Simulated assay, not measured.
Amino acid sequence: MSSIRIGIILGSTRPGRNGEAVARWVLDRAETRDAAYELIDLADFPLPHLDEALPPAMGQYANAHTKEWAQKIAQYDGYIFVTPEYNHSISGVLKNAIDYLYGEWNNKAAAFVSYGSVGGARAIEHLRAIASELQIAHVRQQLSFSLVTDFENYSVFTPAPHHDAGASTLFDQLEAWTTALKPLRTS
C-alpha cells in the first residue's frame, strides 16, 4: 500500500441526501487502489458558520471544533470532494468547512465528484476556483452524476457502468498528483 492518504469529503449534511451513496460508491471503487482512501462525512463535523476571529491563513485556531477539523484534514495528502449542486454552486456546509482552514489544504491534490440535475458541473466549476485559491492542485478528470439518468426516482443511486472508467482515470490522476506534491509538504 502506498503511503499516500486521500480523504473523500462528503459535502452534504441534508436529511435524505444522495451524496452518501455517491461517496460510498467512490470509496468502494477506491478499495483496490494503491492509496489509502477514507470517507470524511461533514455530518460528523458540525461546524457553525465560520466563527474564528483570526483569518484561517494565520493557522491560529481558537475553537475546539476548528482544531478537530484541522487535525482531520491535515492527515491527508489529497481529497475527493463529493458535492451536490445547489443553486448552481456547492452546498453551504461544504463551503463553510473549506473556509475554516487554509494551511491544511495547501500543496495537496483534489478531484471532484458531483451530482445534480445537470450532473453538478457548475458546482465543480466553483470548487475549482476555491481550490486554486487554497493552493490545492485539482486534476482534470471529474465525475458528474445526473439525477435524471444515474438515480432512480431522483433518490436511489444507480450509476451507469461507463462511470467506472472515469473513476479509474480520476484515481490515476489524483494519486499521481498527490504523490508529486508530497515533497512540497515535507521540505
Rank of each mutant, 00 (worst) to 15 (best):
A123C: 10
G116Q: 06
K182Y: 11
R185P: 12
A121E: 05
M58E: 15
G16E: 11
A21K: 09
V118H: 11
G119F: 03
L42R: 05
V82W: 05
A36Y: 11
S187H: 15
T149N: 13
L127K: 09
V82Y: 06
R140D: 12
D44M: 06
L27M: 09
Y102L: 11
F157D: 06
I40G: 01
K182T: 13
K67Y: 02
F45A: 01
L181A: 12
E20L: 14
S2P: 15
F112A: 01
L47G: 01
I4A: 10
R24H: 05
V82R: 04
G7K: 08
G78N: 10
S168N: 15
D77T: 11
A131I: 04
R140G: 11
G119M: 04
S144F: 00
Q141F: 02
A131S: 14
L127W: 06
L39G: 00
E133Y: 11
V22S: 03
A74Y: 13
H65A: 01
Q141K: 14
D41V: 02
P55C: 00
N107L: 13
I6P: 06
S132D: 10
S146Y: 07
A43M: 03
F145A: 01
N63C: 07
N87T: 10
L170Q: 07
A74E: 15
D28T: 02
Y76H: 14
S187Q: 15
K108I: 04
G92D: 07
E152Y: 11
L47P: 00
I6F: 08
S12F: 06
N106K: 13
A137Q: 11
E52T: 03
A43N: 05
I6S: 05
T179W: 12
A62T: 13
A160L: 15
Y154I: 00
S89A: 12
L47V: 02
S114P: 06
K182D: 10
S114G: 09
